[in-house]
Design a protein around this nucleic acid. Sequence first.
DNA 1: TTCAGGAACATTGTACACAATAAACATTGA
DNA 2: TCAATGTTTATTGTGTACAATGTTCCTGAA
Lengths: 207, 207
Amino acid sequence: MQIVQQSLADQIYTELKNSILRGELAPREKIREDELASRFGVSRTPVREAIRRLSDYGLVNLAPRSHAAIAGISDKEARDIADLRVELECFAIDHISGELLEERLPELSRYAAECIYALSIGERDRSFSEDSLFHIALVETSGNAALAEVYRRLDARIQLLRVKQNLDEDRLVGYLNQHSELLSLMKAGKTDEAKKLIRIHVLHSEA
Amino acid sequence: MQIVQQSLADQIYTELKNSILRGELAPREKIREDELASRFGVSRTPVREAIRRLSDYGLVNLAPRSHAAIAGISDKEARDIADLRVELECFAIDHISGELLEERLPELSRYAAECIYALSIGERDRSFSEDSLFHIALVETSGNAALAEVYRRLDARIQLLRVKQNLDEDRLVGYLNQHSELLSLMKAGKTDEAKKLIRIHVLHSEA
DNA sequence: TTCAGGAACATTGTACACAATAAACATTGA
DNA sequence: TCAATGTTTATTGTGTACAATGTTCCTGAA
């Protein structure tokens, strides 16, 4: 078995990303390479690379010769991202063929179930990440790799948004149940209804 | 006056990007940090950072512990990217308000004119980059920052695509003239026709 | 001949040191 | 007191050295 030895930069990137998405690092908070390096017990080099990558995914803001800072999301940005999500996911749904859907359905169903299960045992973070996986898989099912790539990039900020929104438990359950509902509509070939549901789902708007 | 001193990594990123987009570095070609460092007369550190960033923009493929390689675009990817472009730009057009259009119109018109002028004096590369600027500005005019960011990211590969397509001069002129035609339609509020034209424009399909 | 194993080499990953610049602070004059 | 300016300090940008790993080529046995 091939042990995929992740680079330190990869590990630190993942760690920092999780910290940010768990809200342990607040928006606008300054980041110092030196401090993180000693915290992780490595040199600045991989930390620096991790920070650059976080910046590429829009999780930190980088000003040249100046401190990096954890990125926040304004209300306007939140709306923009949500609007864009609706567009991208509807585009995906329009392009999902029956065969590809069939193929990916078990995976999609699993994510949908995991979301709800994780929430029920109090693992809100994991529920959120499974939610992300569901939507990423949905978009991938379109077969359009460029779309999938763009969406994966957007996902980091979508996750940031979820944390910020901080929905209460009841609404969250209702929200997560829409996943399997969506799959049913798609299986039945009700594309237009599926797109309507996505809009409601993403914008958290009522019917 | 504030002199914005670009970092070496920035400069090298730009240089390499241009080299790739000019086709001086062929797809699948291997990249060695060491070689580039000595070519640019700097250490590996900024070169490394530039390569990472190129990878983030999809211009080079990066495998851990292995060589980086200039990215190519398959026919399937080309279609995917074009489809996605149509979607994103139509989304933008739908969201462009009269006021924002008014504000940006001079800039858009200038890009449209520069495209044609640059081509007429044989500067095909510059014509292409002005073409990119036109479409980026168009998308920015929507006022949706998330959309603009996503599109700018996609732009690197769109440029790669243009080089690969290598349209003949005649078709290119016709293609570039569609820019001002598009602006006219939008000014007249003929949104649906503008979207139809974008589809034709991007997919290079006839009416 | 061909395949397995290993040694030599090439190249990336990381640590560390120094240089360059921005931020913070103190000092002086009004 | 306050503003302007010089000085110190903190932090990022870059260069260099070494470590870890992947690659290539050779050797020898089936």
